[in-house]
């Protein structure tokens, strides 16, 4: 996994609440056996008409947001299906951080496994960032994970919380499986004990 560096980039506003993973990446694109190449189909049914032409009024089709690296989104972003294709598609498009008042649990976890930082903030602060994102390409927002700080184009600083272990993994691009296998002795001894206590499992 790539390390999460401090980013300064364009933020796209998506105020709609309950944006689900079917919207982020419709099921017809889940038939792939790869992780890559899904960015072109990100938000496919909102972004294109049936003939594959771009819908001009969709935010990521507007010239000022085509290079967006940050999404500022409505409540409960990423709800629905567990498909990791959602963060794969977001990452492949170039999104590195997402701000919302809340995220669905599985999507939230999936982001961290793919170098994307989901940031939860209270409504008032999301409103400030949404307004900043509305300004378009000249308003570049920065997200500093090390110092847990978002800075708007006007210099407004908004601190955020992040789980320490996840922050560490993201900053260092660490592979979870490798880390867990370092604790193999603990897993083995748990298994031996469980086999005694619950042999039917």
């Amino acid at each position: 996994m790539d390390k999460f560096e401090k980013i300064t980039g364009i933020a796209a506003p998506m105020p709609l609440v309950n944006i689900d993973t079917d919207m982020i990446i419709p099921k017809i694109f889940l038939k792939t056996i790869k992780r890559s190449g899904l960015g072109v189909n990100l938000f496919d049914e909102m972004r294109y008409d049936r003939e594959g032409n771009e819908n001009a009024d969709f935010v990521l089709n507007k010239p000022q947001y085509r290079q967006a690296e940050i999404l500022v989104a409505g409540d409960n972003f990423g709800c629905g299906s567990s498909r990791e294709h959602a963060p794969w598609a977001l990452g492949d498009f170039g999104i590195k951080a997402i701000v919302s008042t809340s995220f669905a649990d599985i999507f939230f976890n999936n982001c961290f496994k793919n170098g994307i930082l989901p940031i939860v903030l209270p409504q008032e602060q999301v409103d400030v960032l949404m307004a900043d994102a509305e300004k378009g390409a000249n308003a570049r927002m920065s997200v500093d994970l090390e110092n847990q700080l978002i800075t708007t184009s006007d210099g407004v600083e908004i601190p955020f919380e992040v789980d320490a272990f996840r922050k560490h993994c993201l900053l260092n691009g660490l592979d979870d499986i490798g880390l867990t296998l370092e604790k193999k002795a603990a897993i083995d001894s748990f298994e031996a004990k469980a086999a005694q206590e619950r042999p039917w499992v």
Binding site: R35, S82, R83, E84, P87, I106, N109, N110, K113, N114, D163, F165, D176, I177, T180, L181, K184, I187, E191
Partner: peptide
């Protein structure tokens, strides 16, 4: 019982555990 993403599927296949809070 709960759903997981594909990276976690790989994690469980490899370690039979999940990193959880």
């Amino acid at each position: 019982a709960h759903g997981i993403g594909t990276s976690e599927v790989e994690h469980v296949l490899a370690t039979q555990t999940l990193i959880q809070q």
